[in-house]
Design a protein around this nucleic acid. Structure first.
Lengths: 182, 182
DNA sequence: CTAGCCATGTAATCCGTTACATGATTGG
DNA sequence: CCAATCATGTAACGGATTACATGGCTAG
């Protein structure tokens, strides 16, 4: 983040919240200590704040060493996340749940997907325009496209899942009432 | 897991690895202590092993209390995972990376998606058949369908992303060589 | 004047993995 | 007989969040 002009821990946190929140998060309890550690390791340097008005701020810069390290890190294969999707875990034990709770969970998830997609609808066009002028925006757009395509797929899955769950409920019901429903 | 007949910590771990691995994981360091804690809380009971041959095993059963707790947990809204997708993080700082590394990362990811999809191709038809006979299998199938739809979407994103990244590389190149490439 | 934001930081805590230790049984 | 698998467990460690503490500045 220092490499793209974010100088303070506070600014970094805001950047993560505002621009990377659909695939990353960081807390102050993480950011500030790491900044210190990086300073000790010679990756970053603290800029002496020349009596700026306003609250005390620690502005950092990337050193040449830090820049090399960054390049190296970017070139390493990214680790893939170990998914921990509680919705799916609950669903896979759905047989033990009371009737309707599975469908309800999936519907809830669907609503969340729709909300995200609306956000993407607002964010994408201006970004697409800005990407033509600023190379770095184009990279951000990539991650937004990822979020959109994934949420769209999840939305389709939700609809399919609700269908399957409803069918299961019906089967169950007709079995319970002794198939009398015909 | 006790509710579906998995009695030992070992069996639970294997079940997670074999059936839930695309959206969950657990380690022994987690499982065994939790089992003890659940026993203290009266959620589970240790079955006395009647001199079974083979290695010592601690088999557990769900108590009525545990079953109530399970039902309650299943009914609670699942937390959504805080995604931490290193690929996207690196991509969003892709401007700072050496040429080609972004495309390479995305290609790698694409390969992984394809591998997963092949696995789904093998697993899905037999499960779909088994789901007609066993209700509980139908719930497992739901999670597998989720995995498939998501990976398919990721695959499409990879292709799009490679296209966009290639275009960015070309722009950059022609800018560097003074637009001489026409 | 006060609520809200800018800004920094630490300590407690939690969740979970990794590494290690142990030992019985079984199939080749 | 030896490797693999069944089976259980603990200690150390690590990464990250949460809660808390502090304080200046600014806009209404």
């Amino acid at each position: 983040m220092l490499s793209v002009g974010l100088e303070t821990g506070y600014a970094m946190k805001k950047h993560v919240e505002g621009n990377l929140s659909h695939f990353w998060q960081e807390s102050y309890g993480q950011i500030y200590p790491v900044l210190r550690r990086l300073e000790d390791e010679g990756m970053v340097r603290r800029r002496k704040s020349a009596a700026t008005p306003g609250p005390r701020r620690n502005a950092y810069l990337l050193t040449a060493r830090g820049e090399r390290e960054l390049r190296g890190w970017l070139a390493e294969a990214p680790e893939l996340p170990i998914p921990r999707m509680e919705l799916l875990l609950k669903l896979s034990f759905g047989e033990r749940a009371d009737a309707g709770v599975c469908i309800e969970h999936v519907r809830e998830h669907r609503t969340m997907c729709e909300r995200d997609l609306e956000l993407f609808d607002e964010m994408e066009p201006p970004l697409e325009a800005a990407a033509l002028a600023h190379r770095n925006v184009a990279f951000g757009l990539l991650t937004l496209r990822y979020g959109r395509l994934l949420r769209e797929a999840e939305l389709r899955w939700c609809d399919e899942a609700v269908g399957r769950l409803a069918a299961l409920d019906n089967e169950h019901e007709s079995a319970r009432t002794g198939e009398a429903s015909r």
